[in-house]
Write a protein that binds this DNA or RNA. Structure first.
Length: 497
RNA sequence: GCGCCGCUAGCUCAAUUGGCAGAGCAGCGGACUCUUAAUCCGCGGGUUGUAGGUUCAAGUCCUACGCGGCGCACCA
């Protein structure tokens, strides 16, 4: 039996488009030419002839083009709306008396929605005032073999994510989001650059698992014959850089965490992490606020951003600070501190239907209570300060209150957007904390860090007192746009179809 | 990982109690020289996510699996 012709199984509309491609080839016309005439972009034409009055020829001839997104064919006059990559739209007109019978008929029979076409002709305005190119000739720039989805019904969320290229074609907001993200990342780089931070790139393939509490992805190096971890954080390398005298250092790059995927978590996520010698968590708090405000201004021209659903989020001015235990006490209606014992905290947890892991110490339990009771209430930006030592092994002890650390988390819209520490720089204390972590790891805790002797050796050379911070870029986009994390990531990981 | 909901034409969605699988847009043929989600006439387009089962009869009921969404758990 001969191999089945794959075209036989195609949906009707794809067969039709393939046959149009075949016809172009048969007639010696290239469906995918290496180059097409293009003297101006649609945007340039729109800008140059913005004030051309209704029903007026400009006298100027251009070659331009774009993707066909809307077709209105008449008997002796055809209209098509073309769209360029930047979203600019312009009408093409093909009339019998300009292009002739053959070219007009070819246009009507060979051009489909979604094709990218080129037209050459005079810039005019139609009788209805629409700026147009009245074609003398047209040619195919790229024949689309798949039909475009309906322009006026939203694509299902799954198709939007799986076929982002289609989403980008049909949904202007999808293209906006790409631009907004680029604007935010550039604004952050400029904010740090102007404060004399140096951008570096540190290893993404790491021999040891550390820098945060998270489950890593594991991969393998054939050359080294050893397993490697995709990094969960750049922290331990950026601190090595500070030890070496790179006093203000940052990295914007991806981290990988082998954990749950939901509307606020992606297995690979972009993060800004920055360290500053001779700073502490108070300095970082001021700066992070400024960086976020500068990013907001770059996007919205204001410190008040408007989400796609119309909600306004006010990021202006100073942002409130609360303490972890203070906010938790207020939510419980009972005074709790870092000294409140575990039994008492467990009673509060039970009272609020929070299941308690027996492995949790009092610090972890207090943090869980906070996440359960307080976190979702923090819609406008709020710094939550002073976390228990138990949950922050890389953070310096609080300068006033024993048992606490100098760490804050920034919450916006109920999600954790950023975190910062006064960094732990005492190599002896750091070793104690990491040994404790490695014992947890050896005991089977998949999130605990391994003992990084090289990191400790670096610390033993002396790290200046420093502030450090980390912020999820995807989450910053969420805060600025109101979108879900999968909309802020151009090509999020999805299961195979 | 657990629970709930969904999966039907290229896209977005209907289909009553289990009783002929439909619409809009898109597509094909035709008409139309100023259209703007054009209009008019005509015509095609389906392994109803996959594999089983029950039944005279399954898009519909049952089982398993796949994919997605939401909630819970873990995390940023």
């Amino acid at each position: 039996m001969p191999a089945p012709d794959p075209a036989e199984d195609l949906p009707e509309q794809m067969r039709v488009r393939r046959s149009k491609r075949d016809r172009l080839l048969a007639e010696g016309r290239e469906p995918y030419p290496v180059t097409v005439a293009r003297s101006a972009s649609l945007k340039e034409i729109r800008e140059k002839y913005a004030s051309l009055p209704t029903d007026t020829p400009s006298g100027d001839t251009v070659s331009t083009g774009g993707r066909v997104i809307f077709i209105r064919n008449g008997g002796k006059l055809a209209f098509a709306t073309l769209r360029d990559g930047d979203g600019t739209e312009l009408q093409a007109m093909l009339s019998l008396d300009k292009v002739g019978e053959q070219a007009l008929s070819d246009w009507k029979h060979l051009v489909d929605l979604g094709d990218i076409v080129s037209v050459s002709g005079e810039v005019i305005t139609s009788k209805r005032g629409e700026l147009s190119v009245l074609a003398d000739s047209w040619s195919m720039s790229a024949k689309a073999l798949r039909p475009l989805p309906v322009a006026h019904k939203p694509l299902s969320e799954e198709t939007r994510v799986r076929q982002r290229y289609v989403d980008l074609i049909v949904r202007p907001q999808a293209r906006d989001t790409v631009r907004t993200r680029a604007t935010v990342v550039r604004a952050l780089r400029e904010s740090l650059f102007h404060r004399n931070f140096l951008e570096v790139e540190t290893p993404m393939l790491q021999l040891l698992h550390g820098g945060a509490a998270a489950r890593p992805f594991v991969t393998h190096s054939n050359a080294l014959d050893t397993d490697l971890y995709l990094r969960i954080a750049p922290e331990l390398f950026l601190k090595r850089a500070v030890v070496g005298g790179i006093d203000r250092v940052f990295e914007i790059n991806r981290n990988f965490r082998n954990e749950g995927i939901d509307s606020t978590h992606s297995p690979e996520f972009a993060m800004l992490e920055a360290y500053q010698a001779y700073a502490d968590y108070n300095v970082m708090q001021q700066q992070v606020r400024e960086w976020i405000q500068e990013a907001a201004f770059a996007v919205a021209g204001s410190h008040i951003v408007t989400h796609y659903d119309g909600t306004e989020l006010d990021l202006s001015g100073e942002w409130p600070s609360v303490t972890l235990f203070g906010s938790l006490s207020a939510a419980l209606g009972e005074e709790v501190t870092v000294d409140t014992d575990r039994t008492q905290l467990a009673r509060y947890a039970e009272k609020h239907d929070l299941s308690v892991d027996p492995k949790w110490g009092p610090g972890k339990l207090a943090e869980e209570l906070f996440e359960h009771l307080v976190q979702h209430t923090l819609q406008t930006p709020t710094f939550v300060r002073d976390y228990p030592e138990e949950t922050a092994p890389l953070t310096r002890a609080h300068r006033e209150t024993p048992g606490l650390t100098e760490k804050w988390d920034l919450y916006v819209m109920g999600i954790e957007l950023a975190t910062a520490y006064s960094e732990l720089v005492d190599p002896v204390v750091q070793r104690e904390r990491l040994v404790a972590q490695s014992l947890l790891a050896a005991g089977g805790d998949p999130e605990a860090m391994q003992l990084d002797e090289d990191f400790l050796r670096a610390m033993e050379y002396g790290m200046p007192p420093s502030g450090g911070m980390g912020m999820g870029i995807d989450r910053l986009l969420m805060a600025l746009t109101g979108l879900g994390i999968r909309e802020t990531i151009l090509f999020p990981l999805v299961r195979p179809e």
